[in-house]
Nucleic acid binder design. Structure first.
Lengths: 200, 200
DNA sequence: CTATATTTGCTAACGGTGTTAGGAAAAATG
DNA sequence: CATTTTTCCTAACACCGTTAGCAAATATAG
């Protein structure tokens, strides 16, 4: 009797319909303007139906957050495989990170908090530590320090790398227009400096 | 006849009462929870009175945003006067920027967009360009390039500096807890590297 | 095939948000 | 004292996230 299965399938379909519709709305009007009511309207169901599939609005955002972290990890993974030279790896990773941020602006905004309270603290630990490892590996190789990821210095360098990336991107994303648009030069410059610094 | 003057004074008093109350509410419960109704409640006036003094909520936020930029500029100015050596100046500026972000977390959040849509683009140009000049000056001195702030390379370095600062701070502020808390070491490390890089 | 149980999806509400129209009361002006 | 101006409030509009409760549709058991 595939009845319960069909029901599960139908229920699952509504769920992914919610997600797909929400995503479309976000692309069209941004995170700030996404609302449960608009989603309900678009999928042609009443509002409470949404709550049969997600505990609350934040749960929907969290879903996208995880998607984003997975996609980012994949992109960084691919980038790091482009070369055997750790410095080249790191450059490729930086590149991929940069591209991700602007090609998937909505994901990036959600993941790194330009306007939404989601994906903080413990919510996405698994997803975050995945891409942490990817970035860590070439840094360790370049510094040639002991191969221990818990090495304080390596941790520090990783943190610095990530911060630099995030700073460059988020300042570009908020587009303050005080200084001219320096596009990717800034990134290349900063990463170049970072790698030099890694080698002492 | 000082009647109109008294009226102006009283009106002005309500205005600053609104601002003071709003600021207290922000300190207590954060930007997200600030609402016109709460302000009205706290100053013991009805809601529309707020709109006699501010066009809308964003205008109130903008007021604080400008205050923030002015305070930051002052702090950076003071810091840069601590030494004649440009490298030391830059370190002091970085330090002051860092301290500002954590001592006046609310200002920083408002100014650099961790959660509020304000202070973008053209709104705070004057205030922003003030602290731009302060940071630019030691960078120019260190690179010893032509004394032209419109020099592309200097612009790029300034942008990098600012991005690094912002990245370090905002990642610390959102406290993702994947990596251990590396406090100010990360800042010192990054700035050290940045200055080295400036000198070629 | 009918009766019961379950699932589904709705209406309507609660309490919150920013914002504004319109009118009553108070104050200043002639 | 009458008139005009200013001050300030009530009440509403249109949103928001969230939930209680109920009606209709569906599946299950006898």
């Amino acid at each position: 009797m595939g009845i319960t299965e069909r029901r599960l399938r139908q229920k699952e379909e509504i769920r992914s319909n919610i997600l797909a519709t929400a995503w479309k709305l976000v692309l069209e009007e941004g995170w700030q303007s996404l609302s449960i009511r608009k989603i309900a309207d678009a999928i042609e169901y009443s509002v409470p139906v949404i709550y049969d599939h997600f505990e609350n609005k934040e749960a929907i955002l969290l879903e996208f957050g995880k998607q984003g972290f997975e996609l980012l990890a994949k992109k960084l993974q691919q980038a790091s495989r482009k070369s055997k030279d750790p410095a080249e790896q790191l450059k490729a990773i930086a590149d991929a990170y940069w591209n991700f941020a602007f090609q998937h602006k909505e994901y990036y905004q959600l993941m790194f908090g330009l306007g939404i309270a989601c994906c903080e603290a413990d919510k996405c630990i698994a997803e975050k530590s995945a891409f942490r490892d990817i970035v860590m590996s070439p840094i360790i190789a370049i510094t040639k320090s002991e191969n221990d990821p818990r090495n304080v210095n390596v941790c520090l360098k990783y943190h610095t790398f990530w911060s630099v990336m995030h700073g460059l991107i988020s300042i570009k994303l908020m587009n303050t227009s005080v200084e001219p648009d320096l596009n990717k030069m800034v990134l290349d410059d900063a990463i170049e400096g970072f790698i030099k610094n890694l080698r002492q």
